[in-house]
């Protein structure tokens, strides 16, 4: 008797309509909450629309205005880069450092929880808390400096210091989250590799550079790219903490487009601004991803 061989068929044909039925909730969700709003936003960017009335088609005029005539838009783009780069350049190494420090510390779970706490706090509450700490005249820091005869910086009223302040608060807010990702990556490194490196005479610095960092590179890539994307699109902290001031010094593009849409009622122009920001973030994230992947090879 010839042994029976299992019939091989293409996967989707087996299920017929069943996989689509199970996927349907997800597909409907994605269509309604991602594709539809994105498509609507793209369409809006070619219109002039104040939501009290009907949209009117203006072609590329909103893009033309933002890219060629709106100096404020370009100033906000520069502010966005300063904020995002500051956040990534200081925030990512700091989170890595914290993860290293706590990976060998006693009670590391408690330390990790403490550093993660800001993530559980409402961002508006965080903004008000830091306003209280950083207020130029009555803030805790400047009062403390004043008590020892020092004049503290104008944290919130000097344009440069205001940007420094929002970047530092953003780092404080986000450090715990990135630290957890790095901690998980560090915990995943096989101890035997460290033992082997020690046997080969590698010191602490050499082990970090040649063993630990290459192994946790995927986590590093992930944290860097997601932090960059977060930094480029984040504005709620700035809205609550400085309102984009002083004199527009902390007004980032996401905040500018938010105001354009909901305060100035210029939905078309705001959509165009949001799409330009989306394109910038997409292109830079792609470049960043490729650069980090190249280096890991």
């Amino acid at each position: 008797m010839r042994p029976r061989t299992p019939r091989v068929v293409d996967g989707p044909a087996v299920g017929g309509w069943a996989p689509w039925l199970f996927l349907a909730p997800l597909l409907v969700f994605a269509f309604v909450f991602f594709l539809l709003p994105l498509g609507f936003s793209v369409w809006l960017s070619f219109t002039r629309w104040n939501p009290l009335g009907a949209p009117s088609w203006v072609g590329l005029r909103q893009f033309e205005y933002l890219l060629t005539r709106d100096d404020t838009f370009w100033r906000t783009v520069v502010n966005t880069f300063v904020f995002a780069f500051g956040f990534v350049a200081i925030g990512v190494p700091l989170a890595l450092l914290l993860a290293f420090a706590f990976s060998r510390a006693r009670g590391k779970a408690i330390w990790r929880q403490i550093y993660y706490l800001p993530q559980l706090t409402n961002i508006v509450a965080i903004a008000y808390l830091w306003q209280f700490v950083l207020d130029d005249r009555d803030g805790l820091i400047n009062r403390a400096l004043g008590a020892i005869g020092l004049r503290g910086p104008d944290w919130l009223t000097d344009p440069t210091m205001a940007m420094v302040s929002v970047v530092l608060v953003m780092i404080w807010y986000d450090a715990g989250k990135n630290m957890l990702i790095f901690s998980a990556a560090l915990d995943g490194v096989d101890r035997a590799i460290y033992d082997a490196a020690t046997l080969d005479g590698a010191g602490a610095w050499r082990t970090l550079r040649s063993v630990t960092l290459p192994i946790i590179r995927p986590a590093f890539t992930f944290v860097t790219i997601t932090s960059f994307i977060t930094g480029m699109g984040f504005f709620s902290l700035i809205l609550a903490m400085t309102g984009g001031g002083p004199r527009g010094a902390t007004e980032v593009t996401a905040l500018y487009t938010y105001r354009m849409a909901f305060e100035d009622l210029r939905m078309g122009r705001a959509s165009a601004g949001a799409l330009i920001l989306f394109a910038i973030i997409g292109a830079l994230s792609l470049l960043q991803f490729r650069a980090l992947r190249e280096r890991s090879r």
């Binding site: 130029d136 005249r137 400047n142 400096l145 004043g146 005869g149 004049r151």
Partner: peptide
């Protein structure tokens, strides 16, 4: 103003 020159 205070000693640090800030308006009190």
């Amino acid at each position: 103003r205070n000693e640090q020159g800030r308006i009190e």
